[in-house]
Amino acid sequence: MHIAIVTFDGFNELDSLIALGILNQVKAPNWRVSIASPDARITSMNGVVMERHISLEEANTADAVIVGSGIKTRDIILDDTVMAQLKLDPSRQLIGAQCSGALVLSALDLLDGVPACTDLTTKPWVQERNITVLDQPFVAAGNIATAGGCLASQYLAFWVIARLVGVEPACQALHYVAPVGEKERYVSCGMENVSAYLPT
């Protein structure tokens, strides 16, 4: 299984790297998590420099894709050269978006008729695209999911793991990263926010 976290210049570290850390708790054979970007080297909104693992074209072949957030997302969705590289397909991929990543999914016509979660700053811009924004941290419809608020990235990671390898590995991954003394509460919160959107 290959999971790509699409990360653009100006990215929010919490949105991409929390998901990266939680997803990498899975030790299943052939499990791989990659940072995908149009640029070989990207700088976060707080000056952290990071090198990508794969290109956007390679992300198109991943089993799951999470589109991260950042301060340049509104510019990115207007960049036809970048957007043309993304050919995501919910019929064969799990596709998630964190915060302003919802704008990217909308620009790719992946949120038509689907409500979304996003951060409070991005909310009016998503609503301008005629998308209903929910006042909750996570929502999914089929193979499309969105999360709102930096720390909601844990729910996207939980959803991806639960969908690809099962609920128990998702609980174990979240349990590992949760604060000592609060682990059961974190896992319960993950289940509470995500379980309704998992196949029965």
Rank of each mutant, 00 (worst) to 15 (best):
A59T: 12
D80I: 15
N60S: 13
V65A: 04
K72M: 11
Q85P: 07
I131M: 10
V177P: 04
A59H: 09
I42G: 04
Q127W: 09
M83Q: 02
R32N: 10
L134F: 07
F138D: 01
A28F: 11
R185W: 09
G113T: 13
M191L: 15
A162S: 07
K72G: 01
H2Q: 14
G113C: 10
D79Q: 10
Q93H: 03
R41K: 11
G113N: 10
L111K: 07
T61F: 14
G113E: 14
T118P: 00
S188D: 13
N12W: 05
Q154E: 15
T81C: 15
R185H: 12
C189P: 00
T132P: 01
V6E: 00
A62E: 03
I71K: 09
D119M: 04
R163P: 06
G10Q: 00
A140I: 12
G142L: 07
V104M: 02
L110D: 01
D112H: 14
V126D: 06
S34I: 05
A4L: 02
C189I: 03
I54K: 09
A19C: 09
L198W: 02
G70I: 09
A152N: 00
S100N: 15
Q93D: 04
A162E: 07
V160M: 04
M50N: 08
M50W: 15
Q98K: 11
F158H: 10
S195P: 11
S106Q: 07
K123I: 12
V67I: 14
A64W: 07
A64K: 09
F138V: 02
D112W: 10
S44W: 13
W159A: 03
N130M: 15
I161T: 05
P115E: 06
N60H: 06
S106G: 14
V165T: 12
Y155R: 06
L120P: 05
L23A: 04
V82T: 12
G148N: 06
C117Y: 00
A107I: 11
L164G: 13
I5A: 03
G101P: 02
D75V: 09
L120S: 06
P90C: 06
V133H: 04
L151V: 05
H2F: 05
V26W: 07
A4V: 01
I131P: 10
A4P: 05
N24C: 09
T146C: 02
E192C: 10
E192V: 09
L17H: 03
F138C: 01
E168N: 01
P179M: 13
T61V: 12
L108V: 03
L151W: 05
S188G: 11
W31N: 05
A196M: 12
L151P: 02
A102P: 04
G21I: 00
K27M: 03
L120A: 14
S195K: 06
G47P: 14
T73W: 01
A84G: 07
S106H: 10
G113K: 10
Q127K: 13
I35R: 03
S44D: 06
E184H: 10
S106W: 05
Q98P: 05
V49A: 13
L156F: 00
I76F: 08
M45N: 13
I54M: 11
L94C: 08
A102H: 04
C150F: 06
A19T: 01
R52D: 08
D9N: 13
Q98C: 08
E182L: 15
E57S: 14
L108F: 05
A28W: 08
L120W: 06
G190H: 04
A64E: 01
S106T: 13
F11I: 02
I5P: 02
